[in-house]
Design a binder for these strands. Structure first.
Length: 489
DNA sequence: TGAAATGTTGGGGCG
DNA sequence: ACGCCCCAACATTTC
């Protein structure tokens, strides 16, 4: 936490620059709070760099979300007396230019987590420092500073359970910082018009399902948190695996863009512990999985591109463009997989249980490289997050530090029957199967022909036959994984 | 945060 | 009454 600088006479005209990234909020925003506490007038800016070297360019769903989030933030800032300055271009160049144009005496930003952004920010810190401008980096995105968490031996955690124990031992004590009621905006600098950034799709406009599902921005995040606390949190451990129920928090995209701080979510959930005094450990641990992903990315910068376990270089992945497209479109012929992929396409989001099922199917039954699934999720998820996406795909593929064992291959039929027993989820997203009885919904190829006919299903015509036989796909994956060389570590 | 194959047990039908 | 077989149901191990 930065100490407040004495405001007043001499400093009044020299602004502080707040450089935003994935911390688009006013409440519990340490960078904004520190800048405001400096007593200087504020310049609040967001820079979009579409071609930063080494960066993962924002996916389509992320761009849609970002538009809404920036638009909401612009209004929230304006209501408190500050403008949001938008710039697009080379990030380093634009920050230096903003500093020069504003004559900022200090700059505050969130601690960057993405490797490419860390490099740029490090460079900026020294360049600005040479100009006499201090770049203050605040923890705006995580509950726990990744550099503070170490094993007993002093190394980085590689396994979730001890990591989470360390987090629970430290605890989350600080009360969130209240949103400033009034900001002292500096003389506004030139800003791009958000509409000119073209972040929203036009031809075609595929965002209808996203608009129905989400309200980007801090107010939308607060609403979602309130609904979750009042409803599903109490039954979270029991219901969160049922994709047909609205029993998860759906906070992931809000957390990704920092529209709500993980500290605020943690404290609210911990306080709202259900009657009986039981703390909502299951949900808090999901927040810690998010932390663990960021932690892994911090300590393994190549996590999004390369398997953590080097023996996976020898994996005989298949090149299967047709299989990949069928998976992307939700036309694999496996109902629970297709339902998940279609939910993703329509809503920009997929239930966590189904993410595991669809990912396992791609990586194991189809033996397609996890990076291809990662790239698709990156483009289509509104909560696409470099760390979480990479860590979770590596977890499924078995190539991560604390990964699912190679032999854990989800049978999508059994998973469907277990977690979507009445078929509500499949019926919603695969309507061409909706008339099938639950007993056959998850494996329509096993249904008697007369039953298919009565339900209006013609396999191979109205709905695909499976693109891979589940038993032989499983056997092929087991053989490939079993034949990997012994771990070198 | 599995699934499938294999092994074990115990109830009931039956000669 | 007894042994035998079948086969759920459950437990263990293997991938």
């Amino acid at each position: 936490m930065e100490l407040a600088k004495p405001g007043g006479e001499g400093t009044g005209a020299t602004p502080a620059l707040v450089w935003l990234w994935q911390d688009l909020r006013l409440t519990d925003q340490p960078a904004l709070a520190a800048a405001a506490a400096s007593g200087r007038p504020l310049v609040v800016a967001f820079v979009l760099d579409d071609s930063a070297p080494g960066a993962w360019a924002l996916g389509g769903a992320s761009r849609w979300w970002l538009h809404g989030s920036l638009d909401a933030l612009r209004r929230d800032l304006a209501a408190r007396g500050a403008a949001l300055i938008l710039r697009r271009g080379n990030l380093r160049h634009e920050i230096l230019r903003l500093a020069a144009e504003s004559g900022a005496g200090e700059i505050h930003c969130g601690e960057p987590l993405e490797p490419w952004l860390r490099g740029i920010t490090d460079g900026l810190a020294s360049e600005l420092g040479a100009l006499g401008v201090v770049l203050h980096r605040h923890n705006t995105r995580l509950l726990f500073d990744p550099t503070m968490l170490r094993t007993q031996a002093g190394g980085a955690f590689g396994v979730f359970t001890p990591f989470s124990r360390a987090c629970h031992a430290i605890g989350v004590a600080d009360a969130p910082i209240a949103a400033p009621t009034r900001l002292c905006g500096a003389k506004p600098l030139a800003s791009d018009d958000l509409a000119d950034w073209g972040l929203r799709p036009e031809q075609p406009d595929w965002a209808g399902g996203l608009r129905e599902t989400w309200q980007p921005g801090e107010a939308g995040a607060t609403l979602r948190l309130g609904e979750f606390l009042a409803g599903a949190l109490a039954v979270y451990d029991r219901a969160r695996d049922i994709p047909g129920h609205a029993s998860t928090s759906m906070l992931s995209p809000h957390l990704h863009w920092g529209e709500i701080s993980p500290r605020r979510v943690w404290l609210a959930a911990a306080r709202a512990a259900p009657v009986g005094g039981k703390s909502p450990l299951g949900f808090l641990n999901e927040l810690l999985w998010r932390e663990f992903s960021a932690y892994l990315l911090w300590h393994h910068p190549h996590l999004p591109e390369r398997p953590l376990r080097t023996e996976f270089a020898a994996m005989p992945w298949r090149n299967d463009p047709a299989g990949l497209v069928a998976w992307q479109r939700g036309e694999t012929g496996i109902p629970i997989v297709d339902a998940g992929m279609r939910q993703l396409w329509r809503c920009g989001w997929m239930h966590n249980r189904v993410r595991m099922i669809t990912a396992s199917f791609l990586v194991k039954h189809l033996l397609i490289p996890w990076q291809q699934g990662e790239a698709w999720f990156w483009d289509t998820l509104v909560d696409a997050d470099l760390a979480a996406n990479a860590a979770n795909w590596q977890w499924v593929a078995g190539s991560g530090a604390d990964a699912a064992p190679y032999f854990r291959i989800f049978n999508p039929v059994l998973q469907g029957r277990k977690f979507d027993p009445d078929g509500a989820y499949v019926r919603r997203f695969v309507p061409e199967l909706a008339q099938l009885p639950a007993a056959f919904l998850h494996a329509p190829w096993e249904a008697p022909l007369a039953m298919l006919k009565a339900a209006g299903v013609a396999l191979g015509a109205t709905y695909p036959t499976p693109i891979v036989d589940l038993a032989s796909g499983r056997a092929r994956a087991l053989a490939a994984f079993r034949n990997l060389p012994r771990p070198t570590a």
